[in-house]
Design a protein around this nucleic acid. Structure first.
Lengths: 199, 199
DNA sequence: TGGAAAATAGCACGACCGGTCGTATTATGG
DNA sequence: CCATAATACGACCGGTCGTGCTATTTTCCA
């Protein structure tokens, strides 16, 4: 069962590399060095580079789940839960201890014009995530926290725009106003959907 | 003066590779093969890989200028010009003949956690672009097409979110509704800023 | 048209890539 | 406590990376 421990360590170091350098920057040599393991020792845990990438993406999703989804699920259903989720979503990577940005967001722009299993996996993760956003939004509407005729798909699409714009302005432009901008945009989106003003 | 011609050819092929594979995917060997030139013949045109990357980014900006900014400048100042700009901006890369997505948007997520001249160059291009957006938005407000108290910075920030969300949903998710979603979001943004309904 | 100058090709380099193999070490179940 | 299977190691494979150096070809002007 020592294998499990080193695998955890590999995924941990791999996520650090991934969040900074992107999928194409996760190299067997680099990861082996970061995890203080020989390249071949590392390779025994993942039968190929592609398997490693898939495992890292899953680990990123798992990390996001514990840092974003789980806390949100403790809030009351409807708008409060949606609010907490968005609050935890924006900039979650830093709060989860990653040295770089959100690996999935980066993959969205890194793999957009390529084919293959890795791309498909990212697409599945992203669709899963958007389904969750839709579900929480629809709940908020069903509970009367948002206008019942709210266009849920459009709402989620706009929300993703806020996330991406926040990521770009916070991580790339390093604009200290990123948080404020995102909050204003989210408030405007909620207002447009008929939400009551925040407490 | 034959050098100029091959340089143009190199930049052209380089942009194709860049838009699909990102900055890290632009490799001397790959580009040399695409341009039917020897690796060393190519290398003579750019004294280093970094110089090549900078030249490619500039070429991308030049291409965007002719395909996005110039057509917009022919529209009447104020809101009409802003509308044309946004119309031309979303999905401009495909319309400009690139096989992939917007190189700058991809670079925003590829280089966000790295340092160096290339990152600085992308940052400069992006700031320049956002300054243009701010300028056109402020003009629209000054001309009474938008509410005078419009928060220009927030408006531009939201606009960038629409662009990024459109890029992600159109290029990565390949959602055919991307155009509609972006149009709705932009209309809502304009309405919120007090614009008259579109013709 | 000849000859200087510019442009391109050829080649070699060290580093690193993903991946394989045989061996040594280590952990664990009987 | 030992046999055995799991785990990690070092060396190495064929390729490609970016980058120099040196020929060779091509272009351009006098």
């Amino acid at each position: 069962m020592k294998s499990q421990a080193t695998r955890v360590s590999l995924l941990h170091h791999g996520l650090n590399v991934l969040s900074v350098y992107g999928l194409s920057g996760v190299t067997l040599g680099r990861l082996a060095e970061a995890a203080r393991l020989s390249k071949s020792g590392l390779f025994a845990h993942f039968r190929s580079k592609e398997q490693l990438e898939l495992a890292l993406l899953d680990e990123a999703a798992r990390l996001a789940h514990t840092h974003v989804v789980e806390p949100a699920m403790e809030a009351p259903a409807g708008l409060p839960r949606l609010r907490v989720l968005v609050e935890r979503w924006l900039g979650w990577a830093s709060r989860a201890g990653l040295p770089g940005g959100c690996p999935v967001a980066a993959a969205l722009f890194e793999l957009d014009d390529r084919e293959g299993e890795v791309r498909d996996h990212v697409a599945a993760l992203e669709q899963e995530w958007r389904a969750l956003l839709r579900s929480l939004t629809a709940s908020a509407a069903a509970l009367g926290h948002l206008r019942p005729e709210t266009d849920v798909d459009q709402f989620v699409w706009d929300l993703c725009g806020i996330y991406l714009s926040h990521h770009a302005s916070a991580r790339f432009l390093r604009d200290p106003a990123a948080e404020t901008r995102a909050r204003h945009a989210f408030d405007a989106l909620l207002r447009r959907a008929g939400a009551a003003l925040p407490s």
